[in-house]
């Protein structure tokens, strides 16, 4: 059909786009190592895995230590308090945001672990956030515990003095 064709078909523009929708359903599995970590959270415990070669403690336990290639699966319970190794301040609202902004997202090196986990800190003004802050987990109520990191509602300042940079410099 030419652009100036006066017939009825010309009232509809030529097709140039088509919907190409993909919708696939899965049942995903967490695997043995991640499951052990998630199960412990439902129990108010934080359990990682130690690499038998380099002795690093990973959170969660892993199917392979990325340095050694062997499972990092020797169970190690770590503390529910630790040191903020880095942070950022979220100031933009978005659909899945857990709180109205601004709020502080952090990487926390829990005492006894070699890998930081990611979580939120509440109870401080964003401009007070800093590396080295000592924080403590605030767990959800018992009846809300489940195999998910959401079993920890957030972290808050523990009241301890800030950690010296050297204590977490190798875990950034």
């Amino acid at each position: 059909m030419s652009d100036d064709a006066p017939d009825a078909a010309a009232t509809a523009a030529p097709v140039t786009m088509v919907p190409s929708h993909v919708r696939l359903t899965y049942t995903v599995t967490a695997g043995r190592h991640l499951s052990s970590y998630l199960r412990a959270l439902a129990d108010r415990r934080i359990v990682g895995g130690r690499c038998p070669v380099c002795t690093k403690v990973y959170l969660p336990a892993r199917g392979a230590c990325p340095t050694c290639g062997v499972p990092a699966d020797q169970p190690v319970e770590v503390a529910d308090r630790g040191t903020v190794t880095t942070f950022c301040v979220i100031r933009i609202p978005f659909e899945a945001a857990p709180f109205p902004p601004p709020y502080v997202a952090v990487a926390i090196l829990l005492d006894g672990a070699d890998m930081p986990i990611f979580h939120l800190v509440r109870g401080i003004a964003p401009e007070e956030a800093r590396m080295g802050m000592r924080v403590q987990a605030r767990w959800v109520a018992d009846d809300q515990l489940g195999p998910t990191l959401a079993s920890i509602r957030w972290f808050e300042l523990s009241g301890e003095p800030d950690a010296a940079y050297e204590t977490y410099a190798n875990h950034l």
Partner: peptide, 11 residues
């Protein structure tokens, strides 16, 4: 070890 699984939709 009871391994966890969950439904998931990729769209």
């Amino acid at each position: 070890m009871d391994v966890l699984s969950a439904p998931y939709v990729l769209e």
